[in-house]
Design a protein around this nucleic acid. Structure first.
Lengths: 215, 215
DNA sequence: GACGTTGTTATGCAAGTGTATAAATATTGC
DNA sequence: GCAATATTTATACACTTGCATAACAACGTC
């Protein structure tokens, strides 16, 4: 009689498997929220069976944490990339940074869905709250540094309080436009959000960023 | 022998029970996300047994939808209240609106958690996406009207495109500051976010909102 | 005060959950 | 080729999930 044939499989490297499982987890979260991230759904998407998850992670909770760390790392890495623009002039660097934050791949509905799914629990889950705060502050500090350079370049000096307010405001408008761009990107023309973002920052700082060489 | 005593109960009005169940659902979602909103957890919090849910709703899905509609309605109602400020002068109205959007009860971590939990699925759930879009557009239109009044009051006229950009930008900065205020309210001094928000809007529009009578 | 209506509880069920364990097989070193 | 290893599958288990159903009791009506 036909005994059920055992499934064929290949041994992947440990790093590769971990990565695949994390990616599968992020896919599940993006599509159906944390509810959709069951061990079986994750395993199915990763092309393995459920039991394997516990071979690479102590439990589902740890896999979710690893997935969250991954998406956060990816987001900040994108931000860093945007910050490390090749531009020399501070104003162009700030403009390039704002622009990079408001076009793909930073504007991305999948990333947003994952972010929202996790961040919704930041109020009750201390670990998530701390992680968010750290990411936010790191981001804001970068913005603040950038703003300080821009103002110095323009021959203006700002107090610590002014710098702080500028950084908070610029960070907020980027975040706000990012949310809308991710949620309803098709409501905006291509490049429109970046245009609005840069224009807003210019207005806030009271100087032009893009036509660069006026002191 | 002691037969298990059946639980005492009272018959509440239909409206009251529905409301209690919805509120319990929102509590559960706020605390543990959609995952935490199980029929048993909801019933426990509402002070009833699980079966009763299906007496008032066709299923859990419908209860969640009702809860989402409720929280959305509450948010837009708060926004409308902020918009219907008693101020006469357009500039003061806009300032009051921005301020109201950036202090409690609009700034509220519970509301934010619920919003994030639901909106995380807006990318995959068409109904949620449409609902968000409608709410956002309604809100933005109000902002646009307000801005138009302010500019007219200042003797300036703006094209439709300019109005649109202003509305998008102002909306974004309010959203961005709202997110941060909800997630990490203790990082900001009381009233600081409102101050930054109003200041940013002033910078964007190129006029003062609060000391009002210069044309 | 008895009675019927129906809001409410209690119980049960099939499907799905995370996890534990054993069996099987792909890979490595010889 | 062959044995050793540990990656991977398969299966089982206790628990939770949403939902169905029946028993019950609170309330309005006569």
């Amino acid at each position: 009689m036909a005994v059920a044939a055992r499934r064929k499989f290949r041994r992947e490297g440990e790093e590769r498997r971990r990565q695949d499982l994390i990616e599968a987890t992020l896919d599940c979260v993006a599509e159906n929220g944390l509810q959709g991230a069951t061990v079986r759904a994750i395993a199915l998407r990763a092309g393995v069976t459920a039991g394997l998850i516990r071979h690479y992670f102590p439990g589902k909770e740890e896999l979710l944490q690893a997935a969250y760390a991954t998406i956060m790392g990816r987001m900040t890495e994108l931000a860093k990339t945007a910050l490390a623009t090749v531009e020399e002039q501070p104003r162009l660097r700030l403009a390039a940074f704002v622009e990079a934050s408001l076009v793909p791949p930073v504007i991305d509905v999948r990333t947003f869905s994952i972010w929202a799914s996790f961040i919704g629990r930041a109020g009750s889950d201390p670990a998530l709250g701390v992680a968010h705060r750290a990411g936010y502050l790191g981001f804001r500090d970068e913005v603040e540094t950038l703003v300080a350079e821009v103002l110095a370049d323009a021959g203006r000096q700002a107090s610590a309080g002014e710098l702080r307010r500028h950084a908070i405001a610029i960070n907020a408008i980027i975040d706000g436009l990012w949310v809308e761009g991710c949620l309803a990107g098709d409501m905006f023309a291509k490049g429109e959000l970046a245009e609005i973002g840069i224009g807003s920052v210019e207005a806030m700082l009271g100087l032009r960023l893009r036509q660069g060489d006026v002191a």
